[in-house]
């Protein structure tokens, strides 16, 4: 398995792990009511705003740990540049992630239009955010494995 494939798999698991742990922590300890009935916009806005730095920090830490373990096990260094294939795969996976996120965004707006609560809209938004990242990582793994 190439370094790029391993990196994408680590990114996939770190995305899932950080998102799930963060959401469990926030919804369990910082939400006074059932999250699905919580229409406090400040709560949902804060949840999304904080999710971004938490994810960035968590991903950096997990990536460094992966680099150290990978170096010890395989004695392989991270490529210090990305070539044309890496850039193409990154573009394609970013496009897939963007399409999924935009679909979720449109769906969440539609939910508001047909009368669902603000909490439903935010749950849809956060789900599409996480799903888009997962789809982006999965597509990277697929493209590195199968080519295009």
């Amino acid at each position: 398995m190439s370094f790029q494939e391993k990196r994408s798999i680590v990114s996939l698991f770190s995305n899932l792990l950080i998102s799930i742990l963060y959401l469990i922590y926030i919804l369990k300890y910082h939400s006074t009511t059932n999250p699905l009935n919580n229409n406090d916009l400040a709560f949902w806005g804060g949840l999304i705003l904080l999710l971004v730095p938490v994810k960035v920090f968590g991903k950096v830490v997990i990536h460094i740990i992966f680099l150290i373990i990978n170096k010890i096990v395989t004695n392989e260094d991270e490529p210090n540049f990305s070539d044309e294939l890496d850039k193409l795969i990154e573009l394609k996976s970013l496009k897939i992630a963007f399409i999924i996120f935009m679909s979720g965004f449109v769906l969440s707006m539609a939910a508001i239009v047909v009368g669902y609560t603000a909490s439903t809209m935010f749950v849809l938004l956060i789900s599409s955010l996480i799903l888009s990242e997962v789809a982006g990582d999965l597509s990277q793994i697929y493209f590195y494995r199968k080519g295009f």
Partner: peptide, 13 residues
Amino acid sequence: VTRQTIVAIEKGN
């Protein structure tokens, strides 16, 4: 380029 790219080209991927 990276070795991964040479592998992909060689395989016709």
